[in-house]
Design a protein around this nucleic acid. Sequence first.
DNA 1: GAGTGGTCTAGACCACCTT
DNA 2: AGGTGGTCTAGACCACTCA
Lengths: 249, 249
Amino acid sequence: MKPWAPSEIVVDLNGPEPLYSQVARQIGAAIEDGRLPNGARLDNELDLAARLHLSRPTIRQAIQSLVNQGLLVRKRGVGTQVVRTKVARPLRLSSLFDDLSELGDKPESVVLVNRVEPAGDDAIEHLEAPGLTHVRRLKRVRSTGGEPLAIMNNYLPDGIVDPADDELREKGLYQLLRSAGVRLHAAQQNVGARQATEEDAELLDEKPGAALLTMRRTTYDDSGKVVEYGWHVYRASRYSFNLSLTNNV
Amino acid sequence: MKPWAPSEIVVDLNGPEPLYSQVARQIGAAIEDGRLPNGARLDNELDLAARLHLSRPTIRQAIQSLVNQGLLVRKRGVGTQVVRTKVARPLRLSSLFDDLSELGDKPESVVLVNRVEPAGDDAIEHLEAPGLTHVRRLKRVRSTGGEPLAIMNNYLPDGIVDPADDELREKGLYQLLRSAGVRLHAAQQNVGARQATEEDAELLDEKPGAALLTMRRTTYDDSGKVVEYGWHVYRASRYSFNLSLTNNV
DNA sequence: GAGTGGTCTAGACCACCTT
DNA sequence: AGGTGGTCTAGACCACTCA
């Protein structure tokens, strides 16, 4: 197969978007919409650089970002090829609310608890903040299409966000944190399963003993501080996690 | 706090390991073992380059790889800081067997099915290979410490690997694939839950109705071909998934 | 042997943050 | 104003793959 001639790529030398980003975005779009099908060979780096009147390192930076996203594979002595697996994006730092919103569902929430309370040993341990005196405690039931989907319990260190119940109904927790200037950096999640208790069953409109997905999560910000600890349960009949893994670092 | 003076870093100009990799590895090690604690500032790029007698792009490449791993954060105008969250590694392309082996458990397997059979519509669809005529079908029960842990069902396109039952007992499927020269590239996983059926219960030594974790997985190689499709069930009382997410691309 | 990506250098200018 | 990381250039040599 003939290597792709990037006649369609145009770069704006004076625009605000970095050159490598412009190139990466346009090649990525060509892969997404099928102009660059699975297995297609990309032009080599030197030719690409010459045609776009850019330097080779700039081209390499563009290609590298696509390799990191898992859309391209480079092999020394061979070339660069498209590997379009079924799923494009690796796992992101997103919340249930974000995911549902992207799918076009309109999530609804009932806020059961939203208050600041003295920090117990449990909260102090999970938030990894020994001197903490107060925590915000949240308990919400998330629904879509009028059917309950999940029970969401959260601890947050007091003072990070101060949401009204209305805001909690209309926005996801991650959205609120980002709006408050928190720079989310990493999260550690544990996913398991258990049977529904009486209380679970009542809140989720399930029968006691039904299978539930459980998720415990600790979220960290840029400075390494814990900004949120949550333990959630999902109705297994209505929800499951999708994960994309790639082999890149 | 004073920026870290990298007196401990030494580079071997003639060794086989790339310079940026040597630098990244040694800084990474300093973070792991606490010489560079959480929040510590790294020397700026120009000073680092001057002290190590390397160029700035090489230093940047080293730092970038650590940023991609989520160990460092760069802020323009500020500097580079260590963000040591509880968990170091992002999600890798690993199998249950790999994970258990790392934990020191010695996994045992019972091979219930290991044969090549004509490909049904189901297998053809999941392996995304329309012309496929034969598939290898695996069904195994994985145990640790004498207790069953999971039932693992797999389809593989015929001809990729041809394992004896002995090999399946002693090695993980991903190990076998790598040994056979398959370059694993990406996987798409779906994690859910359900209650145990009579058959599940018997194989896993659980009661019918017990909570089980379910995982469906499609694994792709470098060329974008499906190399494996699997549907597994785990005893929720003995197993859960740990995921680390970072915000980097 | 020809072609590819992998690594590395020595500069340059800019955007952003802090003081 | 000074210091930081972000971007970009124009070369160079090497290692690997394939015909």
